[in-house]
């Protein structure tokens, strides 16, 4: 749920700025107004981070986090090798984590699938005007379709969050939302015809609703399958790859939108529509290659039963960071002790 709130907050921020822009700015010389009012907001955030944020909460939030913290503390307190600075060692650990992620085929499939599907979402938002205006729709409708997409995106996230939290069936949900994205992508491309703005908006809302949960589900799924690696490492790779793929998709589709069929809206079968469908279908295909690998849940179960039985997890940690064995896990809090004994 926390991941969902964070992801939705990001989408809502984009939506608020998009909605505020035409109200605040009526001519190019007024663009700076958009930034003026953001300054106090960022000062507040900076102050909040300064006074409120800590690196960690006082207690580990879960058994898996406790094991992870212990491993990291052991690693941080290990004596430095001769001639190696703390800065260089941090770089070594970062590189080791990234290599471990690169060797995790399951995670690679997830990264490719996530980047193709998310990238196509951003591409849709970027070219919404070029898709709809040749069919006789105004720029205003394109803006509304954009807002409807973002709103439905947030609703989809909040609808999916309790399901994700209660089932923790990340792979199933990943596949369900990928299929929904494929179907709704077809609907959006099919609805790009003249004279039916209702269908256009419904299709865009459906696409937003389907794509919304993909981000928090993928982030959580990545953390699950790459445990005990730090969550920000997998998150970084997902963000970077989706940024790059989204950029390539946007650049790739731009010349296709000038093709006759797209420019005149004479058919829904266009090179641009084909490009978008192929990208979405590839994203869906890679989702099918992902296999179930819930390492964090496995660690929680094993740690709760007997911390000395988590050999596989400790072996995994040791492979990535030599000398960083989790060892016995401390109790999370006094009322609910972790260890069986």
């Amino acid at each position: 749920m926390a991941v969902t709130v964070s992801v939705v907050a990001r989408s809502l921020g984009v939506m608020v700025i998009s909605a505020a822009a035409p109200l605040v700015v009526s001519e190019p010389s007024q663009i700076s107004r958009l930034y003026d009012w953001q300054l106090p907001v960022w000062y507040l955030l900076f102050a909040a981070a300064l006074w409120v944020c800590a690196d960690r909460p006082p207690r580990p939030p879960s058994a898996s986090a406790a094991a992870q913290w212990r491993a990291r503390d052991a690693q941080a307190s290990a004596p430095l090798e001769l001639g190696v600075s703390h800065n260089y060692r941090a770089l070594q650990f970062m590189w080791a984590d990234t290599r471990a992620l690169g060797r995790n085929t399951n995670f690679m499939f997830l990264a490719v699938s996530f980047s193709l599907l998310t990238g196509i979402g951003w591409t849709f938002l970027t070219v919404v005007g070029q898709l709809l205006e040749p069919c006789g729709y105004s720029n205003l409708l394109a803006g509304i379709a954009n807002a409807v997409f973002m709103g439905a995106n947030a609703i989809g996230c909040f609808v999916a969050a309790p399901i994700v939290e209660s089932t923790r069936a990340y792979l199933t949900l990943q596949r369900v939302f990928s299929w929904m994205t494929m179907v709704t992508c077809l609907a959006v491309l099919g609805a790009a015809r003249p004279g039916d703005s209702t269908s256009v908006l419904v299709a865009w809302a459906a696409l937003g609703f389907s794509m919304g949960p993909l981000t928090p589900v993928s982030f959580e799924h990545a953390v699950e399958m790459t445990y005990p690696l730090p969550a920000n490492s997998s998150n970084t790779i997902l963000n970077v790859v989706s940024n790059l793929v989204g950029f390539i998709q946007t650049v790739g589709i731009t010349p296709l939108l000038t093709a006759t069929a797209s420019a005149t809206c004479s058919s829904v079968v266009t090179p641009a529509a084909g490009f978008m469908l192929i990208c979405t279908a590839l994203g869906l295909l890679f989702t099918q290659f992902i296999s179930k690998d819930y390492r964090r849940q496995g660690a929680e179960g094993v740690v709760a039963g007997d911390p000395w039985e988590c050999g596989e997890e400790r072996g995994y940690a040791a492979k990535i960071r030599p000398g960083a064995l989790p060892g016995p896990v401390p109790a999370v809090d006094a009322e609910t002790p972790l260890l069986k004994s």
């Binding site: 926390a2 982030f219 920000n232």
Partner: peptide, 14 residues
């Protein structure tokens, strides 16, 4: 760091 912050700070169900 959104996911790291969320995962390491919020107690999740198990």
């Amino acid at each position: 760091n959104v996911v790291r912050g969320s995962c390491s700070a919020i107690r999740h169900r198990s």
